[in-house]
Design a protein around this nucleic acid. Structure first.
Lengths: 245, 245
DNA sequence: CGCTCAGTTGATCAGTATCAAAGGGCGTGG
DNA sequence: CCACGCCCTTTGATACTGATCAACTGAGCG
């Protein structure tokens, strides 16, 4: 939000939580991004079938990857927060096989794929760090698969809350077990593979168990241990460990 | 199977289905792999929590990534066939957040992470192709998420069959709508997030609709169009398109 | 002031899980 | 070569999770 926070601040935080970056690498990151741009909530950032010539960094706001089925059902396959590259994978995949939508007003900036291509020639470590970002996306996908396939709705909702809290913490957007999450219950249903009615009931159960409060967009985790236990949340899959990569 | 087929044959097929490789790159691939080794079906190739110093290429056989929950439930998050790197992601993630198991007798070979690190410095294009492989894994994860979240069991089972057929075709292990798939119904349940009893009923429905036959390990797709339609299968997510990357 | 949209509640329905048991194929050891 | 055992598949009965349908509330906003 702050004008003198560089657009890459959250990205740098996300990366340096996993490995040190050199001053030059940080400069390359800052130099490669376009001017920030605003996307209104509810609008698409990238469309299914697009062949974007650039990848998009989310500076601020919430976005998601989603796919829509013929019957109108929607599945959100990833939720993105500040510092996430929402479609870094399009650099190598070329054609988008899903859409990316802004859930709230989003501030974004882009990198040209040509610039990324150069970086793969000139900056191997930075290239690996970009690769790492997409691998962490994959880890989250797998964890969501486990949740949808084998966790009951209550546990999976709890797991989602644990994940988002952890991820927001990394970029300084959550602390003291509290954070802002501007998701409707319909959207949460599209994340968890549930109907919005059932999401409502699951949230009530989490509230009545005094595990969380969730009023408007304000989520507070009242009992982290109990929530993580219910979720069988093991944060290793987020790989928030600084080591040489 | 054949002794004068190089261990990297399927991998090269998989990669060249997406972009041309130079002769030198193919030589690098062949030169980097260890001597092949055998793993018995039912045994682990990598364990959850491991920090392997190498990544494993599946030369032959079927393997899976899986995670097990406290109640004993298991979710398979990826199914691997010949030519797949089952844990290329461990090169950057370092610690395994799930296990990799051999579903059948598997022939594997490994690449040291040190060798991969060198390649990221000396062979940018090959590096990008490795990155691409992990991105396609991610695409499949997302598609599975859509299936488990929003497709009914029947459609998702159909989708799985379409996916596997397409993937096996790329490495020459499926043709004429027929292929060998050595998966038990329990394992298929762990893939689809279903109980084995329900898998049985779903398969019977696919059979009675004359969409497939599945006897022992032999699967035949009788009506591809109807199966793909039921599945809403759109192969774009597998990115089997040759173009400069 | 009335619309719209998000959240909530109740009633009923459908899809899938669970439990239990039986049948079939195949390898192994006697 | 047969018998046993084991694993996988199949079937039936029942239970339960989560979906669907419908209606109502409350808050924000034009």
């Amino acid at each position: 939000m702050n004008a003198n926070v560089p657009p890459t601040a959250a990205l740098v935080a996300k990366l340096t939580a996993r490995d040190d970056l050199s001053a030059e690498e940080i400069a390359v990151l800052q130099g490669m991004m376009s001017e920030p741009r605003i996307v209104q909530g509810g609008h698409d950032i990238v469309r299914d079938g697009d062949r974007p010539g650039h990848s998009t960094l989310l500076i601020d706001g919430f976005a998601c990857r989603y796919t829509t089925l013929k019957d109108g059902g929607r599945q959100i396959t990833a939720l993105h927060v500040a510092g996430d590259f929402v479609d870094l994978h399009s650099f190598m995949l070329k054609e988008m096989d899903h859409g990316v939508g802004a859930l709230t007003l989003c501030r974004i900036a882009t990198v040209d794929h040509g610039r990324l291509l150069e970086i793969t020639h000139t900056h191997p470590h930075l290239t690996r760090m970009f690769w790492l970002l997409t691998l962490i996306d994959g880890s989250m996908h797998r964890e969501w698969l486990v949740g949808m396939g084998r966790r009951p709705a209550l546990g999976n909702a709890a797991h989602f809350i644990c994940e988002i809290y952890t991820r927001l913490s990394v970029v300084g957007m959550a602390a003291d077990n509290a954070f802002v999450l501007p998701l409707t219950q319909v959207e949460l249903g599209d994340v968890l593979g549930l109907s919005s009615v059932h999401v409502n009931r699951v949230l009530q159960e989490l509230r009545s168990g005094e595990l969380i409060t969730w009023t408007g967009q304000n989520v507070v985790i009242l009992d982290w241990d109990a929530l993580a236990d219910l979720a069988e949340f093991d944060p290793r899959y987020l790989h928030v460990v600084k080591e040489p990569r």
